[in-house]
Write a protein that binds this DNA or RNA. Structure first.
Lengths: 233, 233
DNA sequence: CGTTCATTTGAGTGAAGTCAAACCGAGTGG
DNA sequence: CCACTCGGTTTGACTTCACTCAAATGAACG
């Protein structure tokens, strides 16, 4: 059906710890309109929007990574997903955002009017259906993360995270080099662990010669089979 | 806008640990067609569908509770949501189910053709938009559960769960009596805990005189303020 | 070269897990 | 009506994985 739907299914089956909503793009002119919003540049750690802000826009990531997260009163934070280029954030039906969206590194996003999008979708079944599929894919990815956080050990979570990153962002053809465009604290808050546990687990994977880490931000997967085993099912 | 949307928002803001997708019902005749599927009776512990089954139907819960869960190879299980009467399960775009749906107690579901639903939605923007909103509400609920499982202590998770159950299922007017139509193991698998921890935590709440438990399955909330505090933010 | 921020490593603690046994209520059949 | 079973729950004793606190190391930058 849609050109994008295959990419979505691939993501979902990959058991993603990251967003999987790339279904809105379309070649129809009636939709392209929403692809023409202004570009906004975001600094590392800058917010795209905050918990409680009115939901005026939907954003498509053009460059960089945006972390969607919930901050609890005492400083604990859960990251819900990392949104990569092609992903949309801010979809939904609520009038206000209920999460923070913060860049983990310098990024660019395209701003699309939420009201215009919703209005057009109420007339255009094709667009509404793409919205449905985009959110469904995101739901599947969030459920996969929930399974990981609820049931798996630190090692399983981290191995699974690296594999999902690899499947999602590595150059096609070379799945062994994975860039980590976020701090350890972001990974920790995604996986429901602490910075120290993430660091120790990465170290363990290095001493096992399953991965190699270059300058802290680039992971080379040396033994993808072993890594897959370590990720559990 | 839609009559159901208010119910959805109430659920989402309630920080639900349970499903929140009651957006499909409509008074339009073109949609009512999908509300006329056959009723299927489900025994306690019986499956509505299994992980891997072709996704031929969407189901609306009419009675009882259905647990959506993922089973890992070694027996660990994560429950994704409890679906209550009015909720839909089996929505999405994948050709196969990727979760188990199992009754926690005797239940009835209405079976609706997934193909017919999707086909109708590709013509009817209103239906497609309702699908979008239903899945969006479910996404918000799943995210809330992820935050709880990823960041909160056993006590916080259980207190939050009891409150969300109370908001969702207690008789309007008396939010203090909550029926638990599932085993301790189901609660444990939803919250990412063990049976023993769930049991111990319930016992602690009882000795604190925050709740009272009748015959193991009926919780009386004695001090809802204290319970709310214990649930954290 | 010093400052700052992020990461790693170490030592000790604790919340939740495991294993095991006791308890309880609902059926069932003698 | 009681004894027995059976699934589910509770409680107890002990263990462990991940957390906390603290210090050392490393990388980036003016």
């Amino acid at each position: 059906m849609l050109g994008a739907s295959q990419a979505i299914e691939a993501n979902v089956y990959g058991g993603a710890h990251i967003s999987a909503s790339a279904a809105l793009a379309s070649s129809e002119p009636s939709v392209d309109r929403f692809e023409r919003g202004t570009i906004r540049r975001i600094e590392a750690k800058e917010h795209v929007f905050c918990d409680g802000d009115p939901r005026t826009h939907v954003f498509r990531i053009e460059e960089g990574v945006i972390a969607l997260s919930k901050l609890l009163g005492d400083g604990r934070r859960q990251i819900i997903e990392f949104a990569y280029p092609g992903d949309y954030i801010g979809l939904g039906t609520l009038r206000e955002h209920i999460f923070d969206a913060q860049a983990t590194c310098a990024a660019k996003v395209r701003c699309l009017s939420a009201a215009a999008l919703e209005q057009e979708a109420s007339r255009d079944a094709g667009l509404a259906l793409r919205l449905y599929k985009a959110v469904s894919a995101e739901l599947a990815a969030t459920r996969a993360l929930l399974v990981s956080v609820g049931q798996q050990s630190a090692m399983e979570r981290l191995a699974g995270f690296l594999l999902s990153l690899s499947a999602r962002t590595a150059n096609p053809g070379d799945e062994t080099v994975v860039k980590l465009p976020m701090r350890r604290s972001d990974i920790a808050d995604l996986l429901g662990l602490t910075i120290e546990t993430v660091s120790r687990t990465i170290t363990k994977l290095r001493t096992m010669h399953v991965i190699d880490v270059v300058r802290g931000t680039e992971v080379h997967i040396l033994d993808i089979e072993r890594l897959t085993e370590l990720a559990g099912q």
